[in-house]
Amino acid sequence: MTTQRLHPRVRIVWVVRAIVFAGLFTLPFVAGFYLGYLPEWAPTVAGGVLLVIGVVHALLRYRRWSYEIREDELYLDRGVITQVRTTVPLVRIQHVDSRRGPIERAVGLASCVVYTAGSRGADVRIPGLTPDGANDLRGELKRLAIRADGEDAV
Protein backbone atom coordinates (compact mmCIF):
# COMPACT_ATOMS: atom_id res chain seq x y z
CA MET A 1 0.00 0.00 0.00
CA THR A 2 1.30 3.39 -0.84
CA THR A 3 1.38 6.28 1.56
CA GLN A 4 -2.12 7.36 2.46
CA ARG A 5 -3.24 10.84 3.30
CA LEU A 6 -6.13 11.68 5.54
CA HIS A 7 -9.46 12.78 4.19
CA PRO A 8 -9.33 16.56 3.56
CA ARG A 9 -12.48 17.05 5.62
CA VAL A 10 -10.53 16.10 8.74
CA ARG A 11 -9.32 19.69 8.66
CA ILE A 12 -12.85 20.76 9.52
CA VAL A 13 -12.82 18.46 12.54
CA TRP A 14 -9.53 19.84 13.74
CA VAL A 15 -10.42 23.45 13.06
CA VAL A 16 -13.69 23.07 14.95
CA ARG A 17 -11.76 21.50 17.78
CA ALA A 18 -9.27 24.37 17.71
CA ILE A 19 -12.15 26.85 17.89
CA VAL A 20 -13.66 25.04 20.84
CA PHE A 21 -10.32 24.99 22.65
CA ALA A 22 -9.67 28.62 21.85
CA GLY A 23 -13.10 29.41 23.26
CA LEU A 24 -12.44 27.43 26.43
CA PHE A 25 -9.06 29.03 27.02
CA THR A 26 -10.48 32.48 26.39
CA LEU A 27 -13.06 32.04 29.13
CA PRO A 28 -10.66 32.97 31.97
CA PHE A 29 -9.80 36.16 30.10
CA VAL A 30 -13.46 36.98 29.66
CA ALA A 31 -14.01 36.35 33.34
CA GLY A 32 -11.03 38.57 34.12
CA PHE A 33 -12.53 41.32 32.04
CA TYR A 34 -15.93 41.10 33.71
CA LEU A 35 -14.37 41.12 37.15
CA GLY A 36 -12.45 44.21 36.17
CA TYR A 37 -8.92 42.79 36.31
CA LEU A 38 -8.21 42.96 32.59
CA PRO A 39 -8.67 45.64 29.95
CA GLU A 40 -11.35 45.28 27.34
CA TRP A 41 -9.12 44.13 24.52
CA ALA A 42 -7.51 41.25 26.47
CA PRO A 43 -10.15 38.57 25.78
CA THR A 44 -10.34 39.47 22.11
CA VAL A 45 -6.59 39.38 21.63
CA ALA A 46 -6.16 36.18 23.63
CA GLY A 47 -9.00 34.51 21.77
CA GLY A 48 -7.71 35.69 18.42
CA VAL A 49 -4.15 34.51 19.05
CA LEU A 50 -5.30 31.13 20.33
CA LEU A 51 -7.61 30.75 17.38
CA VAL A 52 -4.93 31.58 14.83
CA ILE A 53 -2.44 29.22 16.48
CA GLY A 54 -5.04 26.47 16.69
CA VAL A 55 -6.18 26.81 13.10
CA VAL A 56 -2.68 27.02 11.68
CA HIS A 57 -1.69 24.00 13.74
CA ALA A 58 -4.70 22.09 12.50
CA LEU A 59 -3.89 22.89 8.88
CA LEU A 60 -0.21 22.03 9.26
CA ARG A 61 -1.19 18.88 11.04
CA TYR A 62 -3.22 17.78 8.08
CA ARG A 63 -0.31 18.44 5.77
CA ARG A 64 2.04 16.38 7.92
CA TRP A 65 -0.19 13.38 8.58
CA SER A 66 0.31 10.29 6.55
CA TYR A 67 0.14 6.59 7.14
CA GLU A 68 1.08 3.50 5.29
CA ILE A 69 0.42 -0.17 5.69
CA ARG A 70 3.64 -1.88 4.78
CA GLU A 71 4.41 -5.50 4.38
CA ASP A 72 4.72 -6.26 8.05
CA GLU A 73 4.18 -2.99 9.80
CA LEU A 74 1.94 0.02 10.07
CA TYR A 75 3.84 3.24 9.63
CA LEU A 76 2.56 6.60 10.79
CA ASP A 77 4.17 9.96 10.23
CA ARG A 78 2.67 12.91 12.03
CA GLY A 79 3.23 15.82 14.38
CA VAL A 80 3.81 19.48 13.72
CA ILE A 81 6.01 20.68 16.54
CA THR A 82 7.39 17.30 17.47
CA GLN A 83 7.45 15.05 14.48
CA VAL A 84 6.61 11.49 15.39
CA ARG A 85 7.11 8.48 13.21
CA THR A 86 5.73 5.30 14.63
CA THR A 87 6.16 1.82 13.29
CA VAL A 88 3.78 -0.74 14.67
CA PRO A 89 4.68 -4.28 13.67
CA LEU A 90 1.45 -5.95 12.59
CA VAL A 91 2.25 -8.91 14.82
CA ARG A 92 1.97 -6.69 17.84
CA ILE A 93 -1.53 -5.40 17.17
CA GLN A 94 -3.78 -6.40 20.02
CA HIS A 95 -7.05 -5.11 18.72
CA VAL A 96 -8.42 -2.46 16.42
CA ASP A 97 -11.32 -0.10 17.00
CA SER A 98 -13.07 2.19 14.65
CA ARG A 99 -14.76 5.12 16.34
CA ARG A 100 -16.66 8.25 15.53
CA GLY A 101 -16.76 11.31 17.73
CA PRO A 102 -19.54 13.88 17.59
CA ILE A 103 -17.66 16.32 15.35
CA GLU A 104 -16.50 13.46 13.18
CA ARG A 105 -20.06 12.24 12.80
CA ALA A 106 -21.19 15.70 11.84
CA VAL A 107 -18.79 15.84 8.91
CA GLY A 108 -19.14 12.16 8.10
CA LEU A 109 -15.74 10.92 9.13
CA ALA A 110 -14.44 8.22 11.45
CA SER A 111 -11.17 7.16 12.94
CA CYS A 112 -9.43 3.92 13.62
CA VAL A 113 -7.53 3.11 16.82
CA VAL A 114 -4.86 0.44 16.88
CA TYR A 115 -3.90 -0.99 20.25
CA THR A 116 -0.66 -2.70 21.15
CA ALA A 117 0.66 -3.94 24.47
CA GLY A 118 3.39 -1.33 24.42
CA SER A 119 3.49 1.14 27.22
CA ARG A 120 4.15 4.29 25.29
CA GLY A 121 2.60 3.83 21.90
CA ALA A 122 -0.10 1.68 23.42
CA ASP A 123 -2.78 3.14 21.20
CA VAL A 124 -2.37 4.76 17.85
CA ARG A 125 -5.23 6.72 16.36
CA ILE A 126 -5.63 7.25 12.66
CA PRO A 127 -8.16 10.05 12.22
CA GLY A 128 -9.79 11.40 9.10
CA LEU A 129 -11.15 8.28 7.48
CA THR A 130 -14.48 7.82 5.83
CA PRO A 131 -16.71 5.48 7.85
CA ASP A 132 -16.30 2.80 5.22
CA GLY A 133 -12.62 3.51 5.03
CA ALA A 134 -12.32 3.13 8.79
CA ASN A 135 -14.12 -0.18 8.72
CA ASP A 136 -12.05 -1.37 5.81
CA LEU A 137 -8.87 -0.29 7.50
CA ARG A 138 -9.90 -2.05 10.67
CA GLY A 139 -10.71 -5.18 8.75
CA GLU A 140 -7.52 -4.96 6.77
CA LEU A 141 -5.36 -4.46 9.83
CA LYS A 142 -7.05 -7.27 11.62
CA ARG A 143 -6.61 -9.57 8.68
CA LEU A 144 -2.97 -8.64 8.39
CA ALA A 145 -2.48 -8.99 12.11
CA ILE A 146 -3.90 -12.47 12.00
CA ARG A 147 -1.88 -13.36 8.98
CA ALA A 148 1.22 -11.96 10.55
CA ASP A 149 0.57 -14.60 13.15
CA GLY A 150 1.62 -13.08 16.39
CA GLU A 151 2.70 -15.57 18.93
CA ASP A 152 3.41 -14.02 22.25
CA ALA A 153 2.30 -10.50 21.58
CA VAL A 154 3.59 -9.56 24.97
Binding site: G79, T82, Q83, T87, R92, A117
Partner: peptide
Protein backbone atom coordinates in the same frame (compact mmCIF):
# COMPACT_ATOMS: atom_id res chain seq x y z
CA UNK B 1 10.07 -7.94 22.82
CA UNK B 2 9.78 -4.72 20.88
CA UNK B 3 6.18 -3.58 20.68
CA UNK B 4 6.63 -0.61 18.45
CA UNK B 5 9.35 1.75 17.38
CA UNK B 6 8.82 5.46 17.70
CA UNK B 7 11.00 8.05 16.06
CA UNK B 8 10.45 11.56 17.41
CA UNK B 9 12.05 14.84 16.44
CA UNK B 10 11.19 17.92 18.38
CA UNK B 11 11.46 21.29 16.75
Amino acid sequence: RIQNVIDTRTI
